[in-house]
Each structure stands twice: as C-alpha cells, then as structure tokens.
Amino acid sequence: MSGAMVEVRWHGRGGQGAVTAAKILAQAAYLSGWESVTAAPSFGAERRGAPVTASTRMAHEKIRVLSQVTAPDVVVVLDDSLLSAVDVAAGLKQGGVVILNTVEPTLALKVPEGARVVRADVTGAAQAAGVVVGGQPIVNTAILGAFAAATGLVMLPAVEQAIAATFSESAAARNVEAARLAYECVQE
C-alpha cells in the first residue's frame, strides 16, 4: 500500500451489511495498530437490494479527510452480480487490490496495471459457518477474513476481536468462524 493513509471502498447491495463491515474493519484496523481510522456509509438514502458503497480509512496520523473515497487502495465487493451494474474498480490506485466474493474463477474484471484481483468464496465460508439469515448467507463479516489474508493490513485476531465485540455470544462465534474460513480460501 502506498502513502500514509489507506482508503478502502466497499461495494454491496442494500441490506448486505457493507456499512457494518466498514465499521468492523475500522475497529479491527484500530486493534491492529492504526491509530486513526474512519468508517462511513455513502451519504444519503439507500434502498434494499440497490448497489451501495461504504468506506474505511486507516492511517497513523489523524485523518482529516471526510469526503467520500474516490481513489481507493482496496476495493471489496460483497456480491459479484454488482460487476455488471457498477464500475467497482473506478479510481483504484496502481498497486491496489480488489477483493471479490465469487465462485467464478474466470469472471472478468478490468483493473489498472499492477493492481491485483483476489477471489474468495466468501458466500461458501458464511454458509459453512452457519451465518445464514432467512435462508440467505450473510457475507459481510466473513469477507473481513479474506480482507486480512489479501492485504495484511489488519491481523486475523484483530478481525475476530472486532467481530466478537459487535455481536452477541453465539452469533459472534459463527461470524468469527466464517471469517476464519474465508481467511483460508483466498486465491489470486
């Protein structure tokens, strides 16, 4: 990662928990030694199922930028159906990373030169850990494990601690397990 501040942009659909994930990542980053962190939704009204974004920033000096992230170091995509609707890699920095929840190894994604695409079956990890609500696997916590594995910016134990602080005991255990499974299944 280049520069003093790391900027992460989240892409999900309304209801998938991108905003919660952005906040848990900020907590995990703080626990991993980033003294200054911020997490924010895209500002305004959101609809269930519609494409949404959120952001996380991490730095060692006080973050004084409050505008939306337009040139991310890391892009996290919760749902690969977004690729046909949104230019998720827009503004991605050179040397940046896209973390994509998919089971499709050949899914095409155009990224700048030097940028990486990391794939992980995060839905599978969530399902295997029993993080399922109303029959739907919820991927927003599991993908934090993939984030730790793909970037090294946050430590897996910090992710686990941040997840545990967000949920009640039994839900926390399942969500932590999902993150661990996703940590193991990232592929370049």
Partner: peptide
C-alpha cells in the same frame, strides 16, 4: 450530518 453523524472514528 453524515460527515460526522454517520462517520465512525476512535
């Protein structure tokens, strides 16, 4: 609003 109300920080 939003800039602080919805932005999390330590």
């Amino acid at each position: 609003g939003f800039l602080l109300s919805h932005t999390a920080m330590p």
